[in-house]
Design a protein around this nucleic acid. Structure first.
Lengths: 230, 230
DNA sequence: AATTTCAATATGTATAGACATATTGAACGC
DNA sequence: GCGTTCAATATGTCTATACATATTGAAATT
């Protein structure tokens, strides 16, 4: 075990047993370095790790404080559907439903304040069965190449990942009653639950795309594991 | 802008425009240091950041490779209900429903292979209205203090956060049709959708607790924003 | 062919010293 | 009182060097 790890473990202990209670300001890095008998860099390595994990907050001049834990943090990965399906051993299928019927979209075009938009609705299938319905708006000012793309054989999801780097994402996860379009394309009865992922991406303040992905609740879940410190 | 940031930006550019395609092995740190005219530490700082973001993978001796992007990663925080409710300006309320009726739990006791368990079911209210139903199993071997706790005034959630450090969490997010208990306690009709968070925590391989949190779908969503690099 | 051994190598960690810079809290002027 | 100025300070960054160590790929052995 490396010095910075044992130091981190000791710090964790102090946080857990309240020697360093929530809100407490830790000693300065140099003092900690003295206490533990290591260089400042090593202390910083330990603190960086705790900061990463969300247990402490660091601010210049103000010092390092123990965070008042307001929840569990974890990193979640929302997979590209095709990979998700193939990982489960299914055969991936893609089907375009319609293009440029934006009026029918469950997404709010106001997000793009007036920019010209492309609307795509398509279906991702697992072994020929509907798995995920995708409803997407694309900002043609930001991604002009999308004007000439028909999306007949490639899903906008994959098309965009290849082409458009983003700098900001906002993702919302919800449970919803199936909309009419969900019922039609995912083969659900009225009122059935769907798991909805809604995502907006921007690149330097320009909204690129917004998407609503709806999944049959009986076949979809998101799992995240975090084997933390200690 | 610091040197390591501009270097990271340039590396990002190379990844995005495929100069460094997925699977590509980057030059060694020292060569990069030469190329960019900085110390190795500065290169490491930039690479650490990209590694964090999941864009590259690093392995000793094997080098650094560009990851084949399989999805969007983001950090999500599942808040403690009380804070969630108060943040929305609601008045938090807590109500114990029953203790030690494990047979009725939607959770699988097999997770704890035979350890003695405590079962708690309770309700979190916002302005007196049901908001979240909590169904929890606690491993009494791992958290013996729970034997004498009645949970009449404090929720097991908060009680545990204070007491039991964990080293591993697994969280699952699902949309479900309301169970009978969801209908009864959240005031839902049969078939209504609920947003379910299921979490298991362990400490050094000992399962500590498992919990199912169900929320009215019409009042609950999880949002994560990640203002990434660039 | 299968297994073991082993040295080369790229990343990981630690040190120590220098400088940069956001923030704070106090002193100052209005 | 109220805003402004400014120096002190703790964290952030960078450099240069040394050593540690997991992995690999090839050579040696079974």
């Amino acid at each position: 075990m490396h010095p910075y790890e044992s130091i981190r473990t000791e710090m964790l202990r102090r946080i857990n047993d309240q020697s360093w209670p929530a809100g407490f300001t830790l000693p300065r890095e140099e003092d900690l370095a003295d206490e533990f008998g290591v260089a400042r860099g090593t202390i910083r390595r330990a603190l960086a790790s705790l900061s990463e994990a969300g247990l402490i907050e660091r601010k210049r001049r103000a010092g390092t404080r123990v965070v008042d834990r307001r929840g569990h943090r974890s990193t979640l990965t929302i997979p590209i559907v095709r990979h998700e399906i193939e990982a489960r051993g299914g055969r991936y299928g893609y089907q375009l439903i319609c293009v440029d019927e934006a009026a029918a979209s469950p997404l709010d075009p106001a997000l793009f304040d007036g920019a010209p938009l492309r609307h795509v609705r398509c279906l991702h299938l697992s072994d020929g069965k509907p798995f995920q319905l995708e409803d997407r708006l694309i900002n043609l000012d930001a991604v002009p190449e999308a004007t000439d793309e028909t999306f007949e054989t490639i899903s906008p999801n994959e098309w965009l990942v290849q082409r458009a780097p983003y700098s900001f994402i906002r993702t919302a996860l919800r449970a919803e009653r199936a909309h009419q379009i969900d019922q039609d394309h995912l083969g659900l009865e009225a009122g059935a639950p769907v798991f909805v992922i809604e995502r907006q991406t921007r690149f330097r303040d320009a909204p690129l795309t917004a998407v609503r992905l709806s999944n049959r609740a009986d076949e979809f879940e998101i799992i995240t594991e975090s084997g933390d410190l200690l």
